[in-house]
Design a protein around this nucleic acid. Sequence first.
DNA 1: AAAAAGCGCAACCGCAACCCT
DNA 2: AAGGGTTGCGGTTGCGCTTTT
Length: 344
Amino acid sequence: MGRSPCCDESGLKKGPWTPEEDQKLIKHIKNHGHGSWRALPKLAGLNRCGKSCRLRWTNYLRPDIKRGKFSQEEEQTILNLHSVLGNKWSAIASHLPGRTDNEIKNFWNTHLKKKLIQMGFDPMTHRPRTDIFSSLPHIIALASLKELMENPSWEEQALRLQAEALQMAKCQYLQYLLQPPSLTNINHNTNNNNPTEIEIMNLINSLSSPLFENQMMTQTNNNPVQPLGTDSVGLLFSHLPSLEVVPNNTNTYETTPFIAKEMYSQNNEVCDPNNTPWQLSSSSTAPSPPSVAPPMNIIHDGPSSNSNNYGDACSSSSFGGSSGSIWPDHLLLEDALFHDIPSL
DNA sequence: AAAAAGCGCAACCGCAACCCT
DNA sequence: AAGGGTTGCGGTTGCGCTTTT
């Protein structure tokens, strides 16, 4: 197919727009709409290519554009959507009224991506980076050095830092073990590296620092904050449901209840405390999605089945299917980002 | 105070999908 | 069905501003 010559055409201005050009473009679109972008520059008296005009309008001049800092809600929405959609900036932007794909892309590249990397997460998979243990000695060394230089009681500090770094790494590894399969990988039913319950229990039991408790305590639904004991772990396994999010188009995505909850509920209504299977669709009687939510159907297939990665763990007799509804929000990256986790 | 480095963001580039004839 | 034109999208660049050295 032929490519449009666009800005390569000689004589057309490139680079930053002047206020005069902006005014011409705004005035023309106000009066005539944009029509054919290719024809617009001539009609509007602009020495620009249509592409440049379209970009300027959609990313900057459009009257409904929301400017300023991204709110924490917006930030979390971007993280959630990115974990499902990847770098589909326009799709993500469609859930954030007033924000452009370009703005979201920039925000991701300059802020969120770095934030994830700093916390030891892979920004593409949203999973903890698997090389955490290999880099641990380096991290500990750096952290210890910093403390040594700043704190007179350096021996104590160095020991404390080492312990905390190890705990943090364990937390991240646990998070990795318990996380749903890659959200961007639809065919994930095979996984030969499932952790055993004993491995996970041992890991949990070995974690005891305030740092760990901060990360691992339940914090939802105004429940009294309780550390996770054996029962909690059982619950945790028995309630890792598999969700299918089916957009109106033909693509199918799988996502976590956390993401769905974020997208469809503002008050934790979706996570039914009675474990009633819930279903959301444009025609259902379930809680209506917020205005930013996409017109999707969500099918909840109940507590985790053997068809997913958690099948073995969930069908285990020792972690029997008790009822409840607590999705381990605290195990998810998106939540962790907003907790007060000390950085090393 | 000046230079260097880092950061944020608007704008550009090129590809691919869509549309129209 | 094929081919050319148009639009949309994601990756990248470059520039101006801010912060650090």
